[in-house]
Deep mutational scan, measured.
Amino acid sequence: MGFKLLSKLLVYLTASIMAIASPLAFSVDSSGEYPTVSEIPVGEVRLYQIADGVWSHIATQSFDGAVYPSNGLIVRDGDELLLIDTAWGAKNTAALLAEIEKQIGLPVTRAVSTHFHDDRVGGVDVLRAAGVATYASPSTRRLAEVEGNEIPTHSLEGLSSSGDAVRFGPVELFYPGAAHSTDNLIVYVPSASVLYGGCAIYELSRTSAGNVADADLAEWPTSIERIQQHYPEAQFVIPGHGLPGGLDLLKHTTNVVKAHTNRSVVE
């Protein structure tokens, strides 16, 4: 069995187990497998329904001669939608809004960016022009300005110390501490036991640490421990890039980060 097929099978099995364990909360999309990078042309966006009122959005972007996937989250909030992270750029984010209108038909009224990198804030200006209120932590807003990236308009308070959590509509926002970046936030959907790890969490097929220019490698494993301790009931975990899975993604990420750190020390 090929690795790609095995990865998709694991996603399907995880979703099936969740649907059985929580039949009222989960209505997993039966329309197909989780979209992969090879299936999404740059400039297009796919939506994948995880649970009743919960979707991931998947886009792709060219970077350094390669094409990478990027995940975000959409959560229903009454007759409105909360968006977590842009679709990595203005063109993708405009396509995301169009796809949401086509498939869901509810307005996106608020959006949260989970850290300051372009795959999370690139497209904020498109959201703002569409009347979406954009939010991020003060740290993310400051770092985005320093980096020359787009800056969300509103500040999220109460997320300055490791372990801080605040309720934001249908989700809980959690600051686990520094990891992929010093400002990275985690998003949890309690009604569906869905954990969105953003770039602080890796997919299972990833074996290298990737972009760690703004990471705190020493603190990252401790931050992941905080996530595990705060959300032990999480059933569906979405990484910032690639295929979702279960809580095993947290341990896998820790292993990859520690291996990278150990290699760096040896070198």
Rank of each mutant, 00 (worst) to 15 (best):
L185Y: 02
L13N: 15
A165Q: 10
T261E: 09
S161E: 13
P107R: 14
V124C: 08
H252I: 08
G246K: 09
G105C: 05
H117S: 00
D216Q: 11
W55C: 02
V187P: 01
A192Q: 03
S70Y: 02
G43K: 06
E145N: 13
V45H: 03
I20F: 03
Y188W: 12
F116L: 08
A218Q: 04
Y135E: 00
L195K: 00
L82E: 08
V45T: 06
K8V: 12
K251E: 09
L173A: 15
M1H: 12
Y12E: 04
I17Y: 09
P170W: 06
G210I: 13
D125C: 04
T60V: 11
P152F: 11
V126F: 10
D214K: 10
F63P: 04
A215H: 07
I104F: 03
T222E: 07
L10D: 05
P41N: 09
I40S: 09
I104V: 08
V67P: 06
T222L: 14
I40G: 07
M18V: 10
A178H: 03
A209M: 11
I224C: 07
T253M: 07
R206V: 09
E33H: 15
T222W: 05
T182P: 05
R142Y: 14
I151D: 02
A234N: 15
D85I: 00
S160G: 07
V171K: 00
I238N: 02
A129R: 09
A165P: 03
S223T: 03
V171S: 12
L6R: 05
T86V: 11
D29S: 05
S191A: 07
V54D: 00
V67L: 12
G210S: 07
V212P: 13
Y202T: 02
V146S: 07
V37E: 07
P69Y: 14
E101M: 06
S181L: 00
S31V: 00
I20Y: 11
F174I: 14
Q235E: 05
D214L: 12
T109W: 06
G163F: 03
A144Y: 11
A90V: 07
Q228F: 02
T140W: 01
V256Q: 14
D216F: 04
H117F: 00
D216P: 14
R128A: 08
I58G: 11
L159Y: 03
T207V: 04
R128M: 15
T109Q: 13
V54H: 02
D248A: 04
A87I: 01
T182I: 10
D79K: 13
V256E: 10
Q229S: 07
L217E: 04
T182N: 04
G177F: 00
T182C: 14
E147Y: 10
A259D: 09
T254W: 08
S160M: 12
P170H: 13
D64E: 03
Y231T: 06
V146F: 09
M1E: 06
G177T: 00
G2V: 13
T140C: 10
A179M: 03
F168D: 03
Y68L: 07
A87M: 02
